[in-house]
């Protein structure tokens, strides 16, 4: 944990203002995001939930600079992502953001260790040995580092992916359904690791999930429906999340969504 994290703990690590993302145009246009305002807190694990088509993945893609919003601004760690050139976006992803996807997180031709250090190689920066050892230790993969992804289990692969996302000390890690393809034991390993990275390393993490159990590892859960944030829950339990989700479904579309800061 670094001192800057504590001194700026009150400022959000990522913010979105008036975020709109529309696919297509005219009568067939789909409003994936219909005006989202959001602050992601520093050093916290934030989960986003919602039914399919609620815009939770689009929100994450826009925050991470993978997709460009139709309107609105995104600021990550003090830099305006929505105004960046493709070249700067590439550098942002390389240096400031970590990713964990649902599947296909690893380059199959590289070993686990090479996958973890890939961002350093791409940036041509020397590997931070100490931090690497710490991260590898934390994911508990010291003995599997020379294996290719094909020789690792699904859970191990996701842990390698987490290690890669964390090893560059990114400002924020975005995880898109990181446990979507895992059995519950492996999912627990991965989620505990993400939790520990927040608690012990002060990492900021945003996780998209549809699994209430996964969401229960978060400090705060945001609920999306029809491209808007409709609800939020702090220090959630699986049951509480399930209840809110149920309420969300019952309310159906058309209800006025609550604006959440």
């Amino acid at each position: 944990m670094t001192t800057t994290d504590t001194t700026r703990a009150d400022t959000p690590i990522a913010t979105a203002r008036g975020l709109v993302r529309t696919y297509g145009s005219g009568p067939t246009a789909v409003h994936a995001l219909a005006g989202v305002d959001l602050d992601v807190q520093r050093g916290r694990l934030t989960a986003t939930m919602g039914p399919s088509g609620s815009g939770k993945s689009t929100l994450m893609h826009c925050l991470a600079g993978l997709d460009r919003p139709t309107a609105g601004t995104v600021v990550v760690d003090g830099e305006e992502v929505s105004a960046m050139s493709e070249r700067r976006l590439t550098r942002l992803r390389r240096d400031r953001i970590g990713f964990v996807f649902q599947a296909f997180n690893l380059v199959p031709t590289l070993t686990a260790l090479e996958n973890i250090t890939l961002p350093f190689d791409i940036a041509r920066r020397p590997v931070d040995r100490e931090h690497l050892d710490a991260v590898v230790q934390a994911v508990g993969l010291s003995d599997r580092l020379s294996h290719k992804p094909g020789e690792l289990s699904g859970g191990q692969q996701q842990r390698v992916a987490c290690a890669r996302a964390l090893v560059t000390r990114p400002a924020v890690v975005f995880a898109d359904e990181p446990t979507g393809n895992l059995d519950s034991a492996s999912a627990h390993e991965v989620l505990s690791f993400l939790r520990r990275s927040v608690d012990e390393l002060g990492q900021s993490v945003v996780m998209v999930t549809h699994d209430p159990t996964a969401a229960s590892y978060a400090d705060r859960v945001l609920f999306l429906a029809d491209g808007r944030i409709v609800d939020e829950l702090a220090d959630p339990t699986a049951d509480a999340v399930l209840e809110r989700l149920g309420a969300l479904t019952r309310r159906a579309s058309g209800a006025t969504p609550a604006q959440v800061r």
């Binding site: 550098r91 992803r93 990713f99 940036a123």
Partner: peptide
């Protein structure tokens, strides 16, 4: 395609 997407997401530039 997927792998290329991953590499780009991790920060590989177009020229690279």
């Amino acid at each position: 395609t997927r792998e290329i997407g991953l590499l780009r997401a991790v920060g590989l530039g177009r020229l690279q």
